[in-house]
Design a binder for these strands. Structure first.
Lengths: 413, 413
DNA sequence: ACATATTCGTCCGCGTTCCGAACGATCTCG
DNA sequence: CGAGATCGTTCGGAACGCGGACGAATATGT
């Protein structure tokens, strides 16, 4: 029952908090930037900006870069940028056939990135947690040698997550159910990495696209993430739409044919049966059973790409089917959510040369004259990397959004 | 792209604005209420609440009701309630087969409500605007005799609206396209009723349910509005989800059968072909062509209800089909948006005794083990009245949310 | 009847924060 | 080298919320 946008009274302190976040955000967006430019951009006065910047400098969130060479008149300003050598976010990912870790600094530069291939379906959740913790330790060590300090961690998983407990309620493709991932990691990871967030992979991939891809021009968008499952991440006004229980975006089990084939989820004619990774491979005549790689390294998807490039008829037909069915589902989604853009990510980014055309055709056919302009269709620049980086980015984003919490963490270097 | 929740700097003035809205909202929710209770509820101190209440009293938004009889110890407080005799909102509705107007006061009591039946497809948009303006004038006169002053107007229309211009981009069931409704009304209505908002009917019906129905317990919900078209209104955290262009919630043209029958929208196998009002009537063996009434008064829907109550097989089968198809579409919607509740509104509220069971069955079948708890299914308490009242409520809600704008409007009575 | 406890609403002084104007600093251009 | 422009700082003023103190109004106990 949120009343007027948040039921909390606004005190001078909260006012300062928000203006601090406003300035820090403007630095992140426009660095390098001078105090005067910040004042113009945020609408605050020069005095207020100065006072806030002083705090941000003391907290080591922002650093001065010396005089800004301006070809204009007057005294040049001092350039401000986000600190590159201070706090950073750690992103982890558990997927069906690999683990990944990456470290991102405040300026959203990826400073460390590790991937470790291996079939996690064959492993016990605790064993996966153990491997992931080791990967994390390696990434943190590499980050420390670059002068970075991890402030928090976020783990991407291909399934539904209970935000409160950090447990994976259900991840069908991993065959996980009720796995308390946060607790499993908490015991295996130094306390400096906590808190550990757990979040759905498709959601994080959408945010990854926002922060590390072409996010700027997307507006409100839906990021469709093709992996072994099919998920959608919905971003509205720069923020993730999570739904009431954090489970929004489950696109893979949209019903396409009410009387179609049975799906593992219990339903019938689900989208995943037409354009999930395994369905595509099978239709193309490839064996999806072996170490299914999500488009990275060598794996069935690269094999498929090879066949497509060679003009293999069966493979091309499989993508025609996938694109068309995905387009039909996307049309319904677009009519329901009215986004500016639809982004194809995950393996769909890799398969875009063959997928895009039938997808777009079906999408437009399903959105007739009802809307002024059809949504743009964009291809993810990140592909399968989007989720880990989105996870790390989520950590740094929350630092940028709440700088107040970090003010006392000054004395570092 | 919105940075830290709004790119506007927070000044002392904005702080006051928000706290004013916070207090006013608390009054609305808990009236009658004393200053001390408001302080406890909002988290502000007694001093701040006192100061804000003084302003609200001066603006005639709130009135004192004399001493509050408390069975407790100590000095009793003075009860505060929203003013019943001051500002009010005017809601209008253009639908296929009727026009409606209603006036709602700050306390969300419906003070005036008029409905005028008549087929608007047969009329020119300008003629409709003329009739609507006359209905509005009558409603306003009735409101004035109760001591109410209209502060603004909102019009509900069954189609896609351009929020900027207040024009109806397309309303297929009215056969309107590019009708500048705001401009048509502006010339025919006294200036005191402006500004005139124009908004989609399904969206307003959802808000109507929130404010005038069982809104309290719904949480985040989707209100499915069955009329001649089928629309959905999505409410998240007490606010409407409009999408990037204000066109979100178009459920009626979700594709159910990609190779199904052609729909007027240009697509194939659309949901409306299975559970739109005309489809249901036709399948039940009734003639939908005559003055199709949206469940109010006498009309084909009441005829249908009669047949259903009598146990007519063809009619029951029609509702079985409608319920099942609506349930399938709702299942996809639920997986995409993850709401707490799904509300059946419009004619579906009237048909609920026969619709609910197949609907719920299909809905649950489509949401297997993937979610912790399936969404609740609720039946609208308002039915076809939801939209007009939501329109009027939207006006009063925006007054409550931005009391600052009304402070100078004091001298009334 | 009267004192006491309790709660309500107001008042006043204080701290935080933003704003606006003025000022010195620094650079470009002629 | 002076005029003009821009940058960042500083200082006083104003708005606002906070906290404690105070009088008002009521119930309870003796």
């Amino acid at each position: 029952m949120a009343g007027p946008s948040g039921d909390v009274p606004l005190r001078p302190r909260a006012m300062r908090d928000r203006n601090r976040a406003l300035v820090l955000d403007a630095v992140a967006r426009h660095e390098p930037v001078t105090r005067a430019q910040l004042a113009a951009r945020t609408g605050l006065t020069k005095s207020s900006v100065s006072s806030i910047v002083t705090e941000l400098l003391a907290a080591h969130l922002v650093v001065e870069q010396g005089a800004q060479r301006g070809s204009e008149l007057g005294r040049p300003g001092t350039a401000l940028t986000l600190a590159r050598d201070g706090l950073a976010g750690l992103g982890l990912e558990v997927n069906v056939d690999y683990l990944a870790a990456c470290v991102v600094d405040l300026a959203r530069r990826t400073r460390v990135q590790y991937v470790e291939v291996g079939d996690n379906r064959a492993r016990d959740p605790a064993a996966v947690a153990e491997l992931l913790a080791r990967l994390a330790a390696a990434a943190v060590a590499a980050a420390r040698s670059q002068g970075l300090t991890i402030s928090a961690t976020c783990v991407a998983v291909p399934g539904l997550v209970d935000q409160e407990t950090g447990a994976v309620a259900r991840a069908p493709n991993l065959d996980w159910s009720g796995v308390p991932l946060r607790r499993l990691l908490a015991g295996r990871v130094p306390a400096a990495l906590t808190p550990v967030l757990v979040e759905n992979e498709a959601n994080l991939a959408a945010l990854g696209e926002l922060w590390f891809g072409d996010g700027a021009g997307l507006g409100d968008y839906v990021h469709i993430s093709g992996e072994i499952g099919v998920g959608a991440g919905i971003v509205v006004a720069g923020e993730l739409f999570r739904g009431a229980h954090g489970h929004a975006g489950e696109l893979g089990h949209t019903t396409l044919e009410p009387d179609g084939a049975a799906c593992a989820c219990g339903g019938r004619g689900c989208l995943e049966l037409f354009c999930g990774q395994e369905a595509i491979l099978r239709r193309a005549g490839l064996d999806p059973a072996v170490s299914t790689s999500t488009g990275r390294a060598d794996g069935p998807v690269s094999t498929l790409v090879g066949q497509l490039a060679a003009g293999d008829g069966q493979a091309l037909a499989a993508l025609e089917v996938a694109g068309r069915s995905l387009g039909v589902a996307a049309a319904s989604l677009v009519k329901l959510l009215d986004p500016d853009t639809v982004v194809l990510g995950g393996i769909y980014a890799v398969l875009a040369p063959w997928l895009r055309e039938p997808f777009q055709r079906a999408l437009l056919a399903g959105i007739p004259m009802t809307r002024a302009a059809p949504p743009r269709v964009a291809i993810s620049a990140l592909g399968p990397d989007a989720a880990v980086r989105g996870a790390a980015g989520l950590v740094t984003a929350s630092m940028l959004a709440r700088p107040g919490a970090l003010l006392s963490v000054s004395a570092r270097a």
